[in-house]
């Protein structure tokens, strides 16, 4: 049981790190997750699906494939989104969307709700996150519905 003890210790050390950036809603990281909704309310899965599939908003399908039979040309730089809601809790999905660098500083996943550590941001996108808090919650709610890696996987 030593590994579990060690993991438990690491989690408790990481417990409830509060983060807040100017203009963005504060949130608490607990372990590998942000357990609480950024808005205090649950998101809307249908709106979330639209964001994920939109290549100028969520941009997700540029790198990820997923259960979107109507979408051609999905990327393969990142894991397939099929079944991701079974693999990860909503809080874990939320942290990976908000700022995955907390878990892996070398991740190529953009930090969708952070302005920190960015360089040469284009004029049109300056001083705002890729998605706002409500959009993050919509995406979290949608990803939570992707429960089946098998039948979700192939269009």
């Amino acid at each position: 049981m030593r590994p579990r003890l060690a993991a438990g210790l690491a989690l408790s050390l990481m417990a409830a790190t509060a983060r807040a950036e100017g203009g963005l809603r504060p949130y608490a990281v607990v372990g590998d997750a942000i357990p609480a909704s950024l808005t205090g309310a649950p998101g809307d899965p249908a709106r979330g699906r639209a964001i994920v599939a939109d290549r100028t908003r969520g941009l997700c399908l540029l790198c990820h494939a997923g259960p979107f039979p109507e979408e051609r040309f999905q990327g393969d730089l990142a894991p397939n989104l099929a079944g991701v809601g079974a693999r990860r809790s909503p809080g874990a999905l939320r942290l990976r969307l908000v700022d995955g660098r907390v878990l892996n500083p070398d991740t190529i996943m953009p930090s969708y709700y952070s302005l920190e550590g960015l360089a040469r941001v284009g004029r049109a996108w300056r001083d705002r996150p890729i998605l706002d808090a409500a959009e993050i919650e919509d995406v979290v709610a949608f990803l939570g519905t992707l429960r089946d890696a098998g039948t979700d996987a192939k269009p």
Binding site: I108, P110, L118, W125, R126
Partner: peptide, 13 residues
């Protein structure tokens, strides 16, 4: 190699 832009990507990635 440097990351840039709102998406924080680099040429090298």
């Amino acid at each position: 190699a440097g990351r840039m832009g709102q998406l924080g990507l680099s040429c090298a990635i």
